[in-house]
Design a protein around this nucleic acid. Structure first.
Lengths: 341, 341
DNA sequence: GTGAAAGCGCTAACAC
DNA sequence: GTGTTAGCGCTTTCAC
């Protein structure tokens, strides 16, 4: 039977045992096992041999408590349901791992209260740094962050005031850019189709920017439709169908909250015999590979999500090394003119 | 300036300070702040007030070192590049969070050596449990797992011998099931199109099962094509194009390593005027929503990835509570007859 | 219901 | 180059 259920201690080997076998003091063993310390070559060899013989695995809880810096970084993301935040996490993990750090993860589900609780939980582990893609922070969250004496990066968005550092781009500007692009293509009658936006303020910022971009040319958004629930290909498909059914006059171009939604619309149009972009122009957001592999590649805005994660982790690591990375790093979006608008 | 760069201690408040303010001993404060201990109601209130006043955040490193159980669970996944393992992680995180646990994450990139190193790293944090979706384990990995005195779950796959527990399904059986289904639909000339499979032994198991399923009916796979690189929609698109170009005789049905690849093929067929399934039948694997939203929904096998993650975390948590969950939990696949085969 | 003492496994600081 | 001492912040005994 496994002994983790009850039974006696059966502890893992400790540094003290390694030291005894190697015939040195604990601290010498400690120095030998970490790099960068001055230890006689022969001593180091003896200690390493003893450690190997015992299958010694250092206890970082003890090490960190005793004064070593933690090698954990708290990461709080709002969702893992689409590939967007998985990409960010991928970039984060890659950069952190390069320096021997590991993410402790929490998913807030776009819930500020849950985000606050997660932050509290992760802080108990005394991480070396913190990465968040915050939704709307609570007052307590803000205060916890203010008191947290460690590098903190907010990712995805650089519009809001920064606690410590931020890595991302302006979603408002991205929305505006798409407005300008579509107007440039000659469209004048616009609709917006989004998923439940109350929770996703970055999508809301893009919509705002889109509206503003249109307004600058004297054009107004003729319809804004918000679907219930999280974004998905299916939701976009249903949404565009409903929008076209209900519209008194068909829009020339539709801007979607993201690519998932837009791809759903492409599928609907294929089935319904609506030609893109001639009958209806479609534009998404995110630059997902699925959109680019379509027979008619999606017009969209690419966000460099993995790079954002990578840069965020890099900022943390740099600051921990005593360097001073820029407090705001812009990893800008890129307009991808496809074949659908 | 931030004080995490140098400067003086500036430590966080400790339990000792909370105790002093509340006018009790450390241990009483400790008991008051954890639930389940006998403390006078009034005392608890005083301690909680003091803790709040100080913005006290318990130090779990110290707590765990002193004998409390860790609330971290090590998670090693091979990839975050497609939604598959992000789904697993989502399920894991959800169940872990329910009991106050948090995942520490490592991504192995399907590299056994890297997996081993990650395991070593995560073990240093003395997690309460371990979840892996192992590729081919090294000898050292196996030995580390054997010596790790904690619940361990291997996810995704239940074909291999189990270290402690496993949650998933048989990929071999899934491949066989697809073979039987396609034969049942009347196809007799089959091709397989996969991504670089050397690293992904689960895809390989499906291929084996597919071959075996065909062999049972006396049919052989007439072509097996492996594309270089990780799977993607684009790779599937390029792959099917090349396969059809080079084939002396067009297959009736193609089985893909996964849905991404298969969707790429659907897109190619749309562009090339090849009717699915009449000119060519296509079948994928995973049951991604993108495939189901296609104008012609993809024939595929759905894997319940989020549920697998959830069940894996549940097994860990149960075992930590002293219960004895089944050592193998099958979260079976489901054949999804679509419109492409 | 509360407390005193001891120690978890390690490292910083200061010797020598 | 190596060792001694003194903690890090908490929880586990075992008392009372």
């Amino acid at each position: 039977m496994d002994s983790h259920e009850n039974d006696k201690p059966a502890r893992r080997p400790t540094l003290s045992q390694v030291a005894r076998i190697a015939g040195v003091s604990e601290i010498t063993a400690s120095r030998a096992l970490r790099n960068g310390s001055v230890v006689a070559k022969a001593t180091r060899a003896r200690v390493e041999k003893a450690a190997r013989a015992l299958n010694y695995v250092p206890n970082r809880l003890a090490g960190t408590l005793a004064g070593g810096a933690s090698r954990q970084v708290g990461v709080i993301l709002p969702s893992l349901s689409n590939i967007v935040f998985a990409d960010v996490l991928k970039g984060l993990e890659a950069r952190l791992e390069d320096d021997g750090y590991h993410p402790i993860l929490g998913i807030s589900h776009y819930d500020p209260k849950r985000e606050e609780q997660l932050l509290r939980d992760l802080l108990m582990w005394r991480p070396a740094g913190l990465v968040l893609a915050p939704a709307q922070m609570t007052e307590a969250t803000r205060s916890l962050l203010g008191a947290a004496d460690m590098p903190i990066v907010e990712v995805m968005d650089i519009d809001r005031p920064v606690t410590d550092m931020a890595v991302g781009f302006s979603h408002h500007t991205a929305g505006r850019a798409m407005a300008h692009f579509l107007v440039g293509r000659g469209y004048r009658k616009f609709a917006y189709l989004g998923h439940d936006i109350s929770t996703d303020f970055r999508a809301l910022a893009r919509l705002d920017g889109f509206r503003e971009g249109l307004a600058e040319i004297g054009v107004a958004l003729s319809e804004t439709r918000i679907m219930q629930g999280p974004s998905s290909v299916l939701l976009g498909k249903q949404g565009i169908e409903a929008l076209l059914r209900d519209a008194s006059e068909r829009p020339e171009a539709v801007f979607f909250s993201n690519d998932d939604m837009a791809v759903g619309a492409v599928f609907h149009c294929q089935g319904a015999g609506i030609a893109n972009p001639d009958d209806l122009a479609l534009a998404g957001f995110n630059g997902l590979s699925i959109g680019q592999a379509l027979p008619t590649p999606l017009t969209t805005i690419a966000s460099n999500r993995e790079e954002i994660g990578f840069a965020a982790a890099d900022s943390i690591v740099q600051k921990l090394r005593g360097l001073a990375p820029q407090s705001v790093r812009r990893i800008d979006f890129r307009l991808v003119p496809g074949a659908t608008a």
